[in-house]
Design a protein around this nucleic acid. Structure first.
Lengths: 328, 328
DNA sequence: CTTGCATATGACAACGTTGTCCAGGCCCTA
DNA sequence: TAGGGCCTGGACAACGTTGTCATATGCAAG
């Protein structure tokens, strides 16, 4: 910028004015400055700007895995909102590791992002307290924050799972399996709770062999599914706790002789084209991201009052697999 | 930092030394400083650091759409490499709009990212020349750069498409349709070229009614597919130019009476569970991202010589749909 | 006891930008 | 013509950090 000023034969501040479109510059002067800028290929250094102004016009997103089809649309939605506010998005994957989540979140704070959208991996977020006090807007998505009071946007995991399982029960099933992630993950715990609630409502006593918690990699999901399908009281239906589980279970069921009903949490692509179509409890990932980002920027505007918990509804989509009658 | 220094009763530089783990500080002093840091919840301001040092330890990724299942893994792979080098990833979606791509790329440069990974939407990247000259490492992925000489990592789109179409021909098809994106997009053009090459190699004259270029939204893809299946010389097989097209075509074919063969470019989830399984020409999105990011950091290390064009092979995965014989 | 060296610490400038404040020139009016 | 207000432009400090260099302290050798 110094160079530009020198070349245009004006003061530093005048260049700054031109670059930022501030008033108080003669068209003639502006032309000269613009010329110098073009000639030198000058581009404002945002680091210095940030240092001076305090706002970075960027927000951070910490999620579990960008490659997961559930988080892609969520991330994109956050990005769109950020863009509408002239902000850039920095994102990082925690890989479901609390330490890595913390490392990422703090690294983002060190870069002075204006706000953070976090899909928590851990369950203790007190490490963010100084940052929040220092003015970093924070919204948690998909799972609530641990040990601190903050905005949270999540799906109705409990209600969704209960509806899904109730749907299976309505179609005559009583021996219903549940395969889900580790209960230390809030969504997994809530969905399990929904499963239990639906079963209890129908006066069904859940046998422990029907439940598989904490499995997530395809091999172990497969084994878990096969076991609950072959035990002494085999299940006639399975409720899959998330998209990855659903995919694996679909594979396993395709190999079974007798039809087994299935309802999965999270929608999956092409679910309608399988035979039978896969019935799912769908959540709207984009809406989650959009809502969270909206709230984040309202925090930054100062138009937001106190932390709130927003729960978005889920939707049961019937495609066939959830409507199969009990067999075997 | 000033506050920390005051509280610990030491100089600014000493705090800096402690924060950065530089040698030359008495354990006793270090303890006092550390204590002050904890008490004040101090975190280094990376903006100032960047301003001073010139390196931001962050790289930018400009892609088409984070929500696209093809770009998720790619983005994640770039992130992993960045993480290994202690860098953060800032990404933005261009939505296939050249202006937006440029806006994003320049915004990232203004933030002084150390490097850029770009999946180009436009075909003229001369706007990046000043930045590259200024030291911003740049690698293009999936499609080559326009009008400038830069590192490029892409899949063998031509060879992949040719193999896929040849595969259909080998199974007896001659009237083969092609549905792809706008030929101004490099990948689309290359795949079209592969289609034409395969047809020519088999001495088949392509009728214009067999080709649909530039359609990408589900409705128009559907219409295009239906038209080429119903004309005066209906096709017996379709080559789908990308994952989104494939998904829609699968839907259309499911409604058809007679079996129609299909090979798609890009793998899609659950493709193996459909009936018939969808044969595809798969490219390795993660490998693309990893390779590109590796090259980026090698540019930054200074261990890289001149721009290069790296082409990764594709893989034909047969699952049934591509092996159907001609019918009708 | 002096000299010299190593080690610990701090003062200061600089990175590039922007907010504040002031100076100078111009035009208008009385 | 003098006085006042407006407009344009620039000097300067500050943002928070780090590299450079100087100083102070301690200790060993002469």
């Amino acid at each position: 910028m110094k160079d530009v000023a020198a070349r245009a034969g004006v003061g530093l501040k005048t260049v700054s004015r031109v670059v930022n479109g501030e008033p108080g510059v003669t068209p003639e002067t502006e032309r000269r400055v613009q010329e110098a800028i073009d000639a030198l290929g000058f581009r404002r250094n945002d680091s210095a700007r940030v240092l001076r102004k305090g706002r970075t016009a960027s927000i951070g997103l910490v999620l579990e895995d960008l490659a997961d089809p559930f988080y892609g649309p969520l991330s994109r939605a956050v990005e769109e909102v950020a863009r509408a506010h002239g902000a850039l998005l920095i994102n990082g994957s925690s890989a479901e590791d609390p330490d890595r989540e913390q490392e990422l979140a703090l690294a983002l704070c060190a870069r002075r992002v204006d706000g953070l959208v976090i899909i928590p991996a851990g369950d203790d977020h007190r490490y963010l307290e100084p940052e929040i006090r220092a003015g970093v807007a924070t919204v948690f998505v998909d799972r609530p924050a641990g040990q601190i009071d903050a905005d949270v946007v999540l799906s109705d995991n409990f209600g969704g799972a209960r509806d899904g399982v109730t749907h299976l029960i309505a179609h005559g099933h009583r021996r219903i399996g549940f395969i889900g992630d580790m209960p230390r993950i809030h969504t997994a715990a809530e969905r399990l709770r929904g499963y239990r609630a639906a079963m209890e409502d129908a006066d069904i006593t859940v046998e422990s062999a029907w439940m598989s918690l904490g499995v997530t990699d395809p091999l172990r999901v497969r084994r878990a599914a096969e076991e609950m399908l072959s035990g002494s009281s085999p299940v006639t239906a399975i409720f899959a706790g998330n998209n990855r589980v659903t995919v694996t279970v679909v594979r396993v069921l395709a190999e079974q002789q007798r039809p087994v009903a299935l309802v999965g949490f999270d929608d999956i692509e092409l679910a309608d084209l399988l035979d039978p179509g896969v019935s799912v409890v769908a959540q709207d990932a984009a809406a989650l991201g959009r809502t969270a980002a909206d709230r984040l920027f309202r925090q930054l505007d100062g138009t937001l009052l106190s932390p709130e918990r927003i729960e978005l509804p889920t939707r049961l989509i019937t495609r066939g697999s959830g409507e199969l009658p009990p067999a075997g």
